[in-house]
C-alpha cells in the first residue's frame, strides 16, 4: 500500500487523508429504532450480514455446539431495519431506541 508517510512519494501535506476510524462520526446517534436479535430464534444463516449498510452485523459464538449467531454493533448502526426485513426467521425485531 502506498502511504503518505513514505518518503518515496512526496505528497503535499493534507493532500492525502488516511482512514482513521477514531475520526469517524458515530452514526449510531442517528438511530431511533433499535434492532434486537433473538439469539434463540436466529438460525445463523448470515442473510442479514451483507445487506447491512453499516457492516454492523457480525456472526459471533453464542452457545457451545451451535452455529454462530448474528450480533449487532450499535456504534454505527443507524437503525434502518433492513436486517429485520430480510431475516427469514424473523429473529430480529425493531424496538424503540433507549
Amino acid at each position: 500500500m502506498i502511504r503518505s508517510k513514505d518518503k518515496k512519494f512526496n505528497f503535499e501535506e493534507g493532500a492525502v487523508i488516511e482512514h482513521d476510524l477514531d475520526k469517524a462520526p458515530k452514526t449510531g446517534d442517528w438511530r431511533y429504532m433499535m434492532p434486537k436479535v433473538d439469539k434463540e430464534k436466529c438460525s445463523g444463516c448470515t442473510t442479514c450480514v451483507p445487506f447491512c449498510p453499516e457492516a454492523s452485523i457480525e456472526m459471533k459464538k453464542y452457545k457451545e455446539g451451535q452455529r454462530d449467531k448474528a450480533d449487532i454493533d450499535y456504534d454505527f448502526c443507524k437503525g434502518c431495519g433492513v436486517c429485520a426485513q430480510v431475516c427469514p426467521m424473523k429473529a430480529i425485531t425493531m424496538e424503540k431506541n433507549k
Binding site: 482512514h19 452514526t27 449498510p53 457492516a55 457480525e58 454505527f76
Partner: peptide, 19 residues
C-alpha cells in the same frame, strides 16, 4: 463493525439509513 466486510469500505459514512 464487521472487519471482514469493511475491509475496503468502512462504517462511519453518512449515507442515509437503509441506503
Amino acid at each position: 463493525m464487521n472487519k471482514n466486510l469493511a475491509k475496503n469500505f468502512a462504517s462511519g459514512h453518512s449515507a442515509c439509513a437503509g441506503c
